[in-house]
Design a protein around this nucleic acid. Structure first.
Lengths: 268, 268
DNA sequence: CTAGCGCGTTTACAACGTAAACCGCTCGGG
DNA sequence: CCCGAGCGGTTTACGTTGTAAACGCGCTAG
């Protein structure tokens, strides 16, 4: 039992769960017959390197070495390290285009659209846990381009999907914001949690872990097992479902998403 | 009008809105009669420096200079740069203790407790927008110590508040997770949005901003004003309210938070 | 054949984090 | 009175980083 998962079958967003999400094109043999080094190859190698060694290990020199080349060679294709990282996050979310389960148009209803998109992003986050914090924290181009959906193309797609499904413009924008927050919070916490888990695992198996002394926190110790369960998939699903319900209410009642008023007597 | 705020009065969580949140004790005069340099002073100066110059500008040497001291002097109090950053995030969330509006016990009900805590954290995030990404992304000590509430003490406080208010243990833990996700997503996006706004503002006032070409994204341009509105405070409030309602349902119906069931008859 | 140029290398430098040695105080015990 | 010890900060030093600038190689066009 490597992953203590629920009995509802394996997590559908786990790596290799879907085809397109983790297609990074591996850098190939590092020295034999080496391909002519273009921007895409560099970004792919950078993603691969971060996935394998962690973000802090990514260095111009080391990335160059990984590609069988000197560090300065990269500067003919990329202006500098910062822009390399920008390119990395762009490339990573562009993997959404290669995901056959995510559509740009809401041809099966907006709920289907949002569901597929959310799981697509989750698949990416889980495929590149070391990259995702970068996706989350790199300053966006404009204030309204929000992580983790960082591209104009997806913002456009999202807004079209919602407005063409009957949402007012206000409601579509509000939905965009709520959706971004939901995705970012859940996925960032999920990958960080996973990162801690593997760090704790490969650090010291014979070492007794050096717990920080829980004697002052009896409730924490009592609930420790419960707290240690990884229910990420189910929680993600539930929170997504709840968001969709909220949006459905907004749509049905045609009211402004702000000031929801009158929850005194909910009919259901 | 330095801050284009809404007409509903100023944001109650804006800096100086509440007393305790931004008490960082300024580093004092950098060279005259300098205090004897202990760990707290160093961490305070680091926070101050990050707030003023940005995270990437924080350097051992520069922080030393800011304190009127050589870089190596810091190593007598802090093992290294990574631990300095850990100390910074710990210090920043410890500001919660100084906030008179946030309580460790739910003496006025769990909703009041969660409301106050959420706004306390939001105040901190807004007071230290450059630090908050660190709070969000630094790997926690244990997988169940989740940002942005990163201390055992607050986890304990949270769980006690909920269980003593009638939540089952499962429900309390689920609430803890949902609450963390909500806070993290909203606040990280809010500070990142603010960061982009000020960056765009001080970069070039005479420069026409170099927009990236929106001609392919007609819906984005049509909704641009709407998208550019900063409704963070209201959205935060609304999402928090919604979370509290969900939790109230869980409490009232006494059911497990997972498997809300009975969504069988969705019209589509 | 040769001038140019696309592409990768070499060299160079300032800034970084940090190990290690080095002072100059202020002590407390003889 | 001395004097070794140790605390607190400095100096020196080293390896690594990002990147500017000059260099060279091999191809292709005139």
């Amino acid at each position: 039992m490597t992953t203590p998962d629920d009995p509802d079958g394996p997590d559908p967003d786990s790596p290799e769960g879907r085809g397109g999400a983790s297609a990074v094109l591996p850098a190939g043999p590092p020295d034999t017959g080496r391909a002519p080094l273009d921007r895409r190859r560099i970004l792919g190698a950078a993603i691969e390197y971060i996935d394998a060694q962690g973000l802090s290990a990514l260095t111009m020199r080391r990335l160059g070495a990984h590609l069988g080349v000197e560090a300065m060679a990269l500067y003919r294709y990329i202006p500098g390290r910062e822009q390399l990282l920008d390119g990395v996050v762009e490339s990573v979310i562009d993997e959404l285009y290669g995901d056959p389960d995510v559509h740009l148009e809401a041809s099966h209803g907006w709920q289907d659209y949002l569901q597929r998109l959310a799981h697509g992003v989750r698949r990416i986050a889980l495929a590149h846990p070391e990259v995702f914090p970068l996706v989350a924290t790199r300053p966006p181009a404009a204030p309204w381009v929000r992580p983790p959906l960082r591209s104009l193309r997806w913002v456009e797609s999202f807004l079209v999907a919602m407005t063409s499904s009957g949402f007012s413009e206000d409601a579509a924008v509000a939905a965009y914001r709520a959706y971004s927050s939901f995705l970012l919070g859940h996925l960032l916490l999920e990958v960080s949690q996973k990162g801690v888990a593997v760090n704790a695992e490969d650090a010291g198996a014979d070492f007794p872990e050096a717990e920080p002394d829980l004697s002052e926190y009896p409730t924490v110790v009592r609930l420790q097992e419960l707290l240690s369960l990884d229910e990420s998939a189910a929680e993600f699903e539930e929170a997504l479902e709840n968001l969709l319900e909220r949006l459905e209410d907004v749509l049905r009642e045609g009211r402004s998403p702000r000031h929801p008023e009158s929850f005194t007597d909910r009919p259901d």
